[in-house]
Deep mutational scan, measured.
Amino acid sequence: NITNLCPFDEVFNATRFASVYAWNRKRISNCVADYSVLYNFAPFFAFKCYGVSPTKLNDLCFTNVYADSFVIRGNEVSQIAPGQTGNIADYNYKLPDDFTGCVIAWNSNKLDSKVGGNYNYLYRLFRKSNLKPFERDISTEIYQAGNKPCNGVAGFNCYFPLRSYGFRPTYGVGHQPYRVVVLSFELLHAPATVCGPKKST
């Protein structure tokens, strides 16, 4: 009989979020998941679920829940969905086509923008091939755009693969920082350890 609540607040209220190319993952297990707390949290810009209804989450049990978190621009949030393409979905964070879970995003301009620009948040701009679902690539190898080998030196046709967002408070909404948490639900042939409040007695 599990009684402790799942530590969703640790994920959602973290002081610093990860850059999207180096997205953070927390495994959540052996706890009671009260999703209504999240669902009623006012400032969400997006709360979209795939393969599961957000209002039914509290009735369900899962083997594991993974909480992935990172920061992207407002106009990139739409790429955090199954079957998407674009710089983020291709080179930074890719969801599987059969994704079961929820994508939760909110504007973090007050936290993550600075006058003069916040350059701490990076994304991958160049990559030889697209990421596989949930693949994480933190390499900083110089990207070779031409035929000539770069030998690890940036220059003509040789690019550092990461780019900084440089968030400023005055940017338009599409270019403002958004914090994103992706909850993915794993249902294995194993005992369920993460259940909603109704199922955990």
Rank of each mutant, 00 (worst) to 15 (best):
I2Y: 13
I2H: 14
T3M: 10
N4L: 09
L5E: 13
C6T: 06
P7G: 10
P7I: 08
F8V: 05
D9C: 07
D9K: 13
D9Y: 13
E10M: 08
V11R: 03
V11I: 14
V11C: 05
F12V: 08
F12K: 03
A14D: 07
T15F: 06
T15D: 12
R16D: 12
F17Y: 08
A18P: 15
A18Q: 09
A18N: 14
A18V: 07
S19D: 07
S19T: 05
S19M: 04
V20G: 02
V20I: 07
Y21N: 07
Y21L: 05
Y21P: 04
N24L: 05
N24M: 08
N24G: 08
R25H: 06
K26Q: 11
K26Y: 09
R27Q: 13
R27G: 07
R27W: 08
R27D: 10
R27K: 15
I28M: 15
I28G: 05
S29M: 10
S29H: 14
N30P: 07
A33L: 13
A33P: 12
D34S: 08
D34H: 07
D34V: 05
D34A: 06
D34K: 08
Y35C: 07
Y35K: 09
S36G: 11
V37L: 13
Y39Q: 15
Y39K: 15
N40G: 10
N40V: 07
N40D: 13
F41W: 14
F41D: 08
A42Y: 10
A42K: 13
A42E: 11
P43A: 09
P43G: 09
F44I: 12
F45S: 15
F45I: 11
F45M: 14
A46R: 14
F47S: 09
K48F: 05
K48W: 05
K48I: 06
C49Q: 01
C49T: 03
Y50G: 00
Y50T: 04
Y50V: 03
Y50L: 01
V52E: 04
V52A: 08
S53T: 13
S53F: 08
N58D: 13
N58K: 13
D59I: 07
L60D: 09
C61Q: 12
C61W: 07
T63G: 11
T63A: 13
T63Q: 11
V65Q: 05
V65R: 07
V65F: 09
V65I: 14
V65T: 07
Y66V: 12
Y66Q: 08
A67V: 11
S69F: 05
I72P: 00
R73I: 04
G74N: 03
N75L: 13
E76L: 04
E76M: 05
E76C: 05
V77G: 02
S78D: 12
S78Q: 13
Q79D: 04
I80W: 01
P82Q: 03
G83P: 01
Q84N: 07
T85W: 09
G86T: 02
N87Y: 15
N87A: 15
I88K: 03
A89S: 00
A89D: 00
D90R: 13
D90G: 09
Y91E: 01
N92M: 02
N92C: 03
N92V: 01
Y93I: 03
Y93Q: 00
Y93K: 02
K94P: 01
K94W: 00
K94G: 04
P96A: 09
D97V: 12
D97E: 12
F99P: 01
G101Y: 02
G101V: 03
G101H: 00
V103M: 04
V103C: 01
I104F: 15
W106N: 00
N107Q: 06
N107W: 03
S108H: 01
S108D: 00
S108L: 01
S108G: 06
N109G: 06
N109Y: 05
N109C: 05
K110W: 07
D112I: 04
D112V: 03
S113T: 04
S113A: 14
S113E: 00
K114I: 09
V115K: 12
V115N: 11
G116L: 07
G116F: 06
G116C: 04
Y119D: 08
Y119P: 09
N120C: 06
N120S: 14
Y121F: 11
L122E: 13
L122G: 13
L122T: 15
L122Q: 12
Y123A: 15
R124C: 01
R124V: 00
R124N: 00
L125V: 06
L125A: 11
K128L: 09
S129A: 12
N130S: 14
N130K: 15
L131P: 01
K132L: 12
K132S: 11
P133I: 04
P133N: 06
P133T: 06
F134N: 09
R136G: 03
R136H: 08
R136L: 07
D137Y: 04
I138H: 10
I138L: 14
I138R: 10
T140H: 10
T140C: 09
E141K: 10
E141A: 11
I142G: 02
I142E: 03
Y143C: 03
Q144D: 08
A145V: 07
G146S: 07
G146M: 02
G146V: 01
G146C: 03
N147K: 06
N147V: 06
N147Q: 07
K148N: 12
K148Y: 12
K148V: 14
P149H: 11
C150E: 00
N151K: 12
G152D: 12
V153R: 14
A154W: 06
A154Y: 04
G155Q: 11
F156A: 10
F156K: 06
F156D: 03
N157M: 02
N157E: 00
C158Y: 03
F160E: 15
F160P: 10
F160V: 15
F160C: 08
F160Q: 13
F160L: 12
P161G: 04
L162T: 06
R163D: 07
S164K: 09
S164A: 12
S164I: 02
Y165A: 04
G166K: 06
F167G: 01
F167V: 00
F167Y: 06
F167I: 00
R168F: 01
P169V: 04
P169A: 06
P169F: 04
P169R: 06
Y171A: 00
Y171G: 00
G172K: 00
V173I: 14
V173E: 13
V173L: 15
G174F: 08
Q176I: 02
Q176M: 06
P177F: 03
Y178E: 01
R179P: 00
R179S: 00
V180H: 01
V180T: 06
V181S: 02
V182K: 02
V182G: 01
V182A: 05
L183S: 00
L183N: 00
L183F: 07
S184R: 09
S184F: 08
F185D: 02
F185P: 04
E186G: 11
L187K: 15
L187P: 11
L187D: 14
L188H: 13
L188W: 13
H189Y: 12
H189I: 10
A190F: 11
P191L: 08
A192K: 13
T193Q: 13
T193W: 11
T193G: 13
T193L: 12
V194Y: 11
G196F: 11
P197S: 15
K198M: 14
K199M: 14
K199F: 14
K199E: 13
S200G: 15
S200K: 13
T201M: 13
